[in-house]
């Protein structure tokens, strides 16, 4: 399964993506986690020390026109073998460069290589049996510009607010317009039984799963540690485990 986790800022994309990746790995899958966001996020939820210089920068070079391109001989397989970082439970993490105090310029090479690699992933037979979990940046932009072409399934996260629901609606429309993808709505931060149904109505999609509002997630995020390490038996962690199970049998 090739998943992309999408939704509005604050919907819980990184926590869900990071937890899901590790749950899949614990179940025996070979898992590649992809962090497309140029803001930090997935590393904390996954449990990887944030790198200084982005590793993928070494795979970038400038062409004659001064534009960044991927160095010769670096395809998706080699990029993952050389530049992905080991994460807990055997997950491999490939990440785009993060914005710096000097802006994006120092890491643009890595961003370009990352985009190139994720575009080519779908056609790489090497990853056919892998599970991929991609954490996209907030909102519709990366979905619109094909940052998740590898995905056969978009996990659409929404919390019970109109901003979150309208964002989910827009993203669903954009990713469906290309065809050949499954969109699954997950209601996050639900406070009671009715909330999940409410999210479904607001977004206009059937609810595939839900994750309850859980102080353990807030605490884990505050500390910058993975939910699975901070509170493995919390309601939210359990809900993500169930989600992984449902996704596997979907």
């Amino acid at each position: 399964m090739k998943l992309a986790v999408v939704g509005k800022g604050g919907a819980g994309k990184s926590v869900v993506a990071g937890t899901l990746a590790r749950v899949f790995a614990r179940r025996g899958d070979r898992v590649l986690a992809l962090d497309s966001d140029t803001m930090p996020g997935l590393t904390y939820s996954l449990g990887v020390e944030p790198a200084g210089e982005p590793l993928l920068q070494a795979a970038a070079e400038k062409n004659e026109a001064g534009r960044w391109r991927t160095r010769k001989g670096i395809g998706p397989v080699r990029a993952v073998q050389r530049y992905a970082q080991p994460a807990p439970d055997g997950v491999l993490l490939l990440q785009s460069g993060k914005t710096t105090p000097e802006g994006m310029a120092p890491v643009m090479g890595s961003v370009n290589v990352f985009y190139d690699v994720v575009q080519r992933l779908r056609r790489a037979p090497y990853f056919r049996d892998w599970t991929i979990v991609g954490d996209l940046s907030a909102g519709p932009r990366q979905s619109a510009y094909r940052w998740a072409d590898y995905a056969d399934t978009f996990l659409l996260l929404a919390e019970p607010t109109w901003k979150s629901a309208l964002t989910a609606r827009r993203i669903a429309r954009i990713v469906r317009s290309r065809g050949g993808v499954t969109v699954l709505l997950v209601a996050n931060k639900t406070r009671n039984d009715a909330d999940a149904a409410t999210v479904g109505e607001m977004v206009g999609e059937p609810v595939f799963g839900w994750i309850p509002s859980d102080p353990a997630v807030v605490q884990a995020e505050r500390k910058g540690v993975p939910l699975l390490d901070h509170a493995p038996h919390s309601p939210a962690a359990r809900a993500v485990e169930q989600l992984a199970e449902r996704l596997s049998s979907h």
Binding site: R141, S143, A144, Y145, R173, I174, S177
Partner: peptide
């Protein structure tokens, strides 16, 4: 007075 500058509503904008 509210002005929306730009929005993305479709693929490959």
């Amino acid at each position: 007075r509210l002005v929306v500058v730009s929005r993305i509503d479709e693929a490959d904008p």
